[in-house]
Design a binder for these strands. Structure first.
Length: 191
DNA sequence: TCGTTGATATTCT
DNA sequence: GAATATCAACGAC
């Protein structure tokens, strides 16, 4: 029996990041299987929450199970799920999906046909699903989102996080081992 | 296949 | 003014 979703998102960011691999996420019926995530803990020097609450990261300090959407490098949107009820400021970044539904809509938004490139990266994922600032703070398991927990754990690989300069040695990037839809390949496999 | 670079919001120094 | 949880286009090999 899978845990209720409020308990599921109450996990520590690192364990939730691993548990999210194989779960499914859709927005207005467009989405697929989560194949790549990164954990950002409260007190983590690489996390946006590290220096306290600002207008941008406000959602990270709000209720768990909500979306934290921010603009990256001035042009891309990135989607996180706020988690860990014990201390505010934790979230899991969704880095890649395996597209399962709404491939045509994704292709239109991305200007591409190649399924492998539709959602392989945090900026690509949000563009394919049509996620922007309007989704910041919305519950990830209520309409227009649809969230389904993984039926069974898959082979989860681990690696260092990408694109950061602080706490770079923490192996807090997780992915579905062997998936073609990762933004970049993984190394070690466990589970 | 690889490295470089442009686009440019938000925060920090 | 500099850095950043990125992506795609481009030129050199």
């Amino acid at each position: 029996m899978p845990p209720r979703s409020d308990e599921f998102f109450a996990q520590d960011a690192v364990s939730l990041a691993a548990a999210l691999i194989g779960c499914e996420l859709y927005l207005d019926g467009v989405g697929g299987r989560i194949v790549e995530t990164e954990a950002y803990r409260a007190g983590d020097a690489a996390s946006h929450s590290f220096r306290g609450e600002t207008l941008r990261n406000r959602a990270m300090f709000g209720p768990i199970g909500r979306a934290y959407v921010y603009r990256s490098y001035g042009l891309h949107w990135c989607l996180n799920i706020v988690c860990d009820g014990t201390e505010p400021g934790s979230a899991v970044l969704l880095r890649a999906l395996e597209p399962l539904a709404g491939l045509d809509a994704m292709g239109r938004r991305r200007g591409l046909d190649e399924p492998r490139l539709l959602c392989a990266g945090p900026g690509r994922l949000t563009q394919a699903l049509g996620i922007d600032a309007g989704h910041d703070g919305l519950a990830i398991d209520e309409p227009p989102f649809l969230f389904r927990q993984a039926a069974a754990p898959g082979p989860v690989g681990v690696g260092p996080r990408i694109g950061i300069t602080k706490a770079i040695d923490e192996p807090w990037r997780f992915g579905l081992a062997g998936s073609r839809y990762l933004s970049r390949p993984l190394r070690n496999v466990s589970g």
